[in-house]
């Protein structure tokens, strides 16, 4: 059966419709919601979406509702295993509590990348990172 469906966006995503999916965006955001629709560009419609942030073994969720995501910005789309998700050894904490740590981590990562790029450029003869520099 698998071989009958060609490897296209539409071919690979049919089975994901009406399932709870994890979407990672190019800016690093992680969204979880029910995939209701998509098209050939991998534009996605996500219902009942929550954004999740992680820090060490904590996570926090914020309710976001109905999303229409432009396909270009999607890095990853994966199904959430409902049987296993409750076994994940992470502790949920309030969003406002975790957000400062999350922001701090992003800032630190950005700093590290800048330093790395600078070293590679000055000492190793690499060219400068172009524009976005988010690795995707």
């Amino acid at each position: 059966m698998d071989s009958l469906i060609p490897f296209t966006t539409s071919g690979s995503l049919v089975d994901c419709v009406d399932r709870k999916m994890l979407v990672v965006l190019r800016d690093g955001r992680k969204l979880q919601g029910v995939l209701r629709s998509y098209d050939q560009f991998a534009n996605l419609v996500l219902e009942d979406t929550v954004e999740r942030i992680y820090y060490r073994d904590f996570f926090a969720e914020a309710w976001k509702g109905l999303f229409l995501i432009r396909g270009e910005n999607v890095v990853l789309l994966g199904e959430v295993d409902l049987d296993k998700e409750d076994d994940v050894p992470l502790r949920q904490v309030p969003w406002e509590e975790l957000l400062p740590y999350h922001r701090q981590e992003i800032a630190a990562k950005k700093k590290r990348e800048e330093v790395k790029a600078q070293v590679l450029f000055e000492q190793k003869g690499f060219c400068k990172e172009g524009g976005e520099g988010d690795g995707y």
Partner: peptide, 15 residues
């Protein structure tokens, strides 16, 4: 894909 979001909702998703 378009039809599946139609009359039959649910599946394993948490709608």
């Amino acid at each position: 894909g378009a039809m599946r979001g139609g009359p039959i909702r649910g599946g394993r998703g948490r709608g």
